[in-house]
Amino acid sequence: MVGIVGYGSYLPRYRIKVENIAKEWGSDPEVIKRGLQLFEKTVPGLDEDTITISVEAARNALKRAGINPQDIGAVYIGSESHPYAVKPSATILIDALGIGPHVHVASYEFACKAGTEAMYVAYSLVKAGEMKYAMGIGADTSQGAPGDALEYSASAGGAAFIMGSENVVAEILFTNSYTSDTPDFWRREHEFYPRHAARFTGEPAYFKHLVSAGKALLEKSKMKPSDFKYCVFHMPNGKFPQMAAKQLGFAKEQMEVGWIVPWMGNTYSGSSPTGLAAILDVASPGDLIFMVSFGSGAGSDGFVYRVTDKIKDVQNKAPKLRDQLDKDKIYLDYGQYAKYRGKIILNE
């Protein structure tokens, strides 16, 4: 059975609280916290980007997998903040990790589901017998325009997953994708910040795609929500995934472990992958995990995982997501945040 043989996550140490953002724009932080269920978010350091986040997450995945990097046949990074418009992010990653040069790499983009696209293709290549191992990564230093609702959520982080067929820690039992042309969120070329269609991003986009993909996945797997120990969905804010879980028939207890958004923010392509990493950090053999991502534009990828008895051997081999989320935080004020995110216009 093909599945995850190693996984790793990485979050920057910097944070900004909702209060600091709301204060600058004359908004009531209590309304934001209550409405979006967001309290603080991660911020990348001045020297961090999607590539550095991917490298650190991938190093942690390699520590858990314990494999020779030279056996990895493909590396895909899904992100909407690749540092280069033309030059694949994974070329830098493979040289940092000692993978290749006989390796296939690509940068994927599909708003917030580029990470699960990378995971899906990596899984499919191993399943097809094309290679022994393949790595899929979801990572972002998400953009949100100053003063926009997205500024409260757009954060930074990522997770990497090595797919293989030996020493699997979580088997992938079923997958399902659901896609349509739904223009709820976009960023034109050369534009610095994305645009979105406000409430249109909810029902016709997020809920329609995520719930449709989830329902089809339940039918395909002939499983019911109560069969699963955990579920994780794309987390644009704290509220949406809870509503999606309810629509699909999952209980709050099933999503609590992977529901990291209130203190992490939306890591875009890294959102549901980091949630999955948080679940794998504590999962036990035999646990079933239900995962559905969402990317604006729009589409959703669904996965059903079954955790194996190998999981306990790898959980402590690399930093856990919750530890990175809860420990050693460095808080920024809005002025520092604006500088860190390149929001201040400087002379050449």
Partner: peptide
């Protein structure tokens, strides 16, 4: 040592990575 961006070659040049 961790993997970080060391410097940029201006606004349109290479991002240069390394260890910190």
């Amino acid at each position: 040592l961790v993997f970080r961006k060391i410097q940029d070659e201006g606004k349109s040049g290479l991002h240069c990575y390394g260890y910190k």
